[in-house]
């Protein structure tokens, strides 16, 4: 399995909300089939950055983006690219688990297919496969018709991960996926992210440095909208090359 090829190539990326510029010319090559963590103090723009990678940022009022983001060499901000179709390639898992409240567990897994047109005949198969992929199958296989919101917070988050992989994306973006769930559930989701990294390109935003160290192959440190350092996780945490990075990971600020 290649670990050197680039999946997402970001160059000179700026992002703003109205007059307020949040990201300043970010350059970064995100490797395929690895877990890349984004860390930094709150308000540093890491969530905005993540949302630029599947063009969710532009859904916000007065939000603008400049620069290029290439997926497998093709610019996702090209005029010919429909952001809606793009998001089926680059899935997203949010901070707070958000299963659709009126839908059953199975329907939630199939949500991406149901929303965008139709559910194929082998729906049961797809549900089982995705739930196994999200390490949730054993817990829910007997209650697939129960509402998604009846699950615990951690289970709901894994359900949302299952929902995201059902549409077979190339890349999975995760915005602080463990910040709203308890420690035990966090451990399970962390394991899952680590496992999914074998087959998916994953970018995960976290405010928890230990978590970044546990689950990621590479880590990027952002501060005040700028990319300070991007390196192998082991290198960045043991021997950072920038003073700001060292100050941050040793807890001098942030």
């Amino acid at each position: 399995m290649s670990t050197t090829s680039t999946k997402l190539s970001v160059s000179d990326l700026d992002a703003s909300y109205g007059d307020h510029q949040v990201l300043h010319s970010i350059d970064m090559d995100i490797p395929a089939k690895e877990v890349t963590a984004l860390i930094g103090p709150s308000g540093c723009g890491k969530s905005t950055y993540l949302r630029c990678l599947n063009r969710m940022h532009e859904l916000t009022t007065a939000a603008t983006v400049n620069g290029t983001v290439q997926l497998d060499g093709a610019d996702i901000y090209h005029d010919d690219i429909d952001p809606v179709l793009l998001r089926r390639h680059i899935g997203m898992v949010f901070q707070k688990p958000a299963p659709f409240p009126t839908w059953s567990i199975a329907d939630n897994v199939l949500a991406g297919l149901k929303l965008t047109g139709g559910v194929p005949d082998n729906a049961d198969e797809i549900v089982e496969k995705a739930l196994k992929g999200a390490a949730l199958w054993e817990e829910v296989k007997d209650k697939l018709d129960k509402p998604g919101t009846s699950l615990s917070g951690g289970q709901q988050q894994r359900l949302c991960i299952a929902r995201a992989i059902t549409v077979e994306p190339d890349v999975l973006l995760m915005d602080e996926p463990c910040s709203a769930i308890d420690p035990v559930a966090t451990a399970r989701v962390e394991n899952l992210i680590h496992e999914l990294g074998e087959n998916y390109t994953i970018v995960v935003v976290t405010h928890n440095m230990q978590q970044a160290a546990r689950i990621s192959d590479k880590t990027a440190f952002l501060m005040m909208g700028e990319l300070v350092e991007f390196d192998e996780t082991s290198k960045l945490f043991s021997n950072p090359s920038k003073q700001e990075t060292e100050d941050y990971i040793t807890g001098k600020f942030g």
Partner: peptide, 18 residues
Amino acid sequence: PGSLREASYGLGATKWET
């Protein structure tokens, strides 16, 4: 909640589908 709209867009649904 807006989070549900976002979740739907994140799955590649259009505005009307959402």
